[in-house]
Design a protein around this nucleic acid. Structure first.
Lengths: 341, 341
DNA sequence: TTGAAAGCGCTAACAT
DNA sequence: ATGTTAGCGCTTTCAA
């Protein structure tokens, strides 16, 4: 049952301090003693209480992760990447699934995250307010934001507008003119969201190419059904339908492709579609997409956070992920050439 | 910074004991005193240290969740359901993503889960061994298994064979004879996995209907691409292709549908497909599916676990979820009639 | 109704 | 190289 380090010490015939040193590997212990202690610990099935250790060391070996969605590919991958990296480093991952606009938000930031239970916090696509971030920082809890730049804290961000520009320019380069953008739903009207930045990039690219007149945009849910609905709608008028679609994420892109094929439009062939994320299903849909490497982002977030925990906690900076704009190798490549109008 | 309850007590002019009672709501405190203490706590932004409290109470308000996949719809939904239910009850969710066959398995069960950091453990589709389960139980950590019956611990299971039988019988009832089953990959050859139980159910239904000669089975990855590949393969021979497919999960079913349509087979119409899970994309693919209600399963697991924590921890039983075999209302319904051969 | 004191299990000086 | 001691922040008897 609840065997304590005192039991181990007694069994090995040493003091608690020695037992602690032997088991943690910190401090001088004779090799023979160490063996004896470890043996004793094994015999009674001793496992240290992290709570007690945390109380004195101030370290919890536990990271809080705030994420808006679990069941969207991009976020699920980030989460897997984070959990794996953390487990490898001996940390626990405590999960808070905070939907956008959730009324739990205050409770999570003010209570759950502020309890000295975490050595650090990773917020994904959540855009903590300055107050929320400041509160944790003041408590000495380092925080890393992924996908949402936050003043004053380490942020891993992609150049979203740049990615969108690249995607749009890719389609323009293929000779398309009537290029529609199907984006995700906004939070607020002029918020600095990923959706809006991608929209900006699209608008920039279209404008630079002198295609202002061809601009068409729509918004839909960041999901396959969302893309399907938007796709059906965009393709409803055979006369004015776009020859290419830049979708804000691969789920939407896949929905558009399914919709197009459903109504007899070949993809690729009659319609070019480019998405963002590098979704694992891209290949089977002949979808061209821009890799965002969510797992790598998760790993980077962990690395950065643990560095902050180890080094000076006040190091405040914004890390911009290199805009790795890799068009994913897929069967779509060969087709794309033929796509050009 | 690290304000302690002593600071609150001092500020309110009471003892630590009184401050503790006032803040926790346990024990007698004069109303005026309580107000004063809560005011003081608010002023200095005090949040109790759960570690210190855990040390004395033995309660951690933290549940460990072991799950094999995050980025598969069914598992993602269960996880969301669990996290939500736990958060509502004031518990933390600590996540362990343990892939089947992972070498981390021992580390997670023997070290991470066995550290008195958790009031309970939920294992999803993981099938803990008797040793793993026994170890935690001996440590006084209640555990609930979802989707994998484990002797000696509370298990929430669906009658998988029954579900598969129902699905198969549904297709038989529509007049189909050449019904193929496309299942998931097995762990071990004759393990008691969900895959094998669903296969059993299919075989039972086919046999009972006297369709032994029509039995065709295949195995593939539990994903859309997996279903796509298997679908292409199953449909490759126009002569012998099945008129209906019972897929072991909706992802596979969707892949099969996409594959069929890709090669000009109409679904529904030329081919009937039934899946399992109740995937959110079912409707847009006109997919008939059997709801498994993962979120509800997650909620049920939490309810059951917290009951075990509160009540007698030694209550050992197997809870079989009622086999709610609801064919999901979808656009496929209308089509299905026409499907019958 | 409140306070004083003990102690949860561990680690980290400090002493030996 | 090992033991002694103090104390992390909290809750909980037990007295008052």
């Amino acid at each position: 049952m609840g065997s304590a380090i005192a039991d181990v010490a007694a069994r090995a015939g040493v003091s608690k301090a020695t037992a602690s040193r032997a088991l943690s590997g910190k401090g001088y212990v004779a090799e023979k003693t160490r063996m004896r202690v470890q043996q004793a610990a094994k015999e009674i099935g001793y496992v240290a209480s992290p709570n007690a250790a945390s109380l004195v060391t101030g370290q919890t070996q536990n990271i809080g992760v705030v994420i808006p969605f679990i069941n969207r590919w991009f976020f699920g991958e980030i989460l897997e990447g984070i959990e794996e990296a953390l487990l490898n480093r001996g940390y626990d991952t405590t999960l808070y699934n905070l939907h956008p606009g959730s009324s739990d938000r205050d409770r999570v930031f003010d209570f759950f995250l502020a309890r000295k239970r975490f050595d650090g916090v990773i917020a994904i696509g959540v855009e903590p307010t300055p107050e929320e971030a400041g509160r944790l920082l003041r408590l000495g809890i380092p925080m890393v934001s992924v996908g949402a730049p936050v003043a004053g804290i380490r942020s891993l961000t992609i150049d979203d507008a740049g990615v969108a520009r690249l995607a749009t320019e890719h389609l323009i380069g293929l000779g398309h003119r009537r290029i529609a953008h199907i984006g995700g739903e906004i939070g607020g009207p002029d918020e600095n969201t990923v959706h809006n930045k991608r929209l900006d990039g699209y608008l920039q690219a279209m404008t630079r190419a002198g295609l202002e007149a061809e601009i068409r945009t729509a918004r839909t849910a960041m999901s396959v059904p969302g893309g399907y609905d938007a796709g059906i709608h965009a393709m409803s008028d055979a006369m004015s339908r776009p020859s290419a679609v830049f979708a804000a994420c691969d789920e939407i892109a896949i929905g558009v492709i399914i919709a197009a094929r459903r109504i007899g439009i070949r993809v690729p062939g009659d319609l070019s579609v480019i998405g963002i994320d590098g979704h694992e299903y891209a290949e089977m849909f002949s979808l061209t997409t821009i890799e965002q490497q969510p797992r790598a982002q998760g790993l980077a977030a962990v690395t950065d956070l643990l560095a902050a925990i180890a080094g000076e906690p006040s190091t405040v900076e914004v890390v911009e992920m290199p805009a790795r704009l890799v068009v994913r190798a897929s069967t779509a490549h060969a087709d794309l050439g033929a796509d050009a109008v």
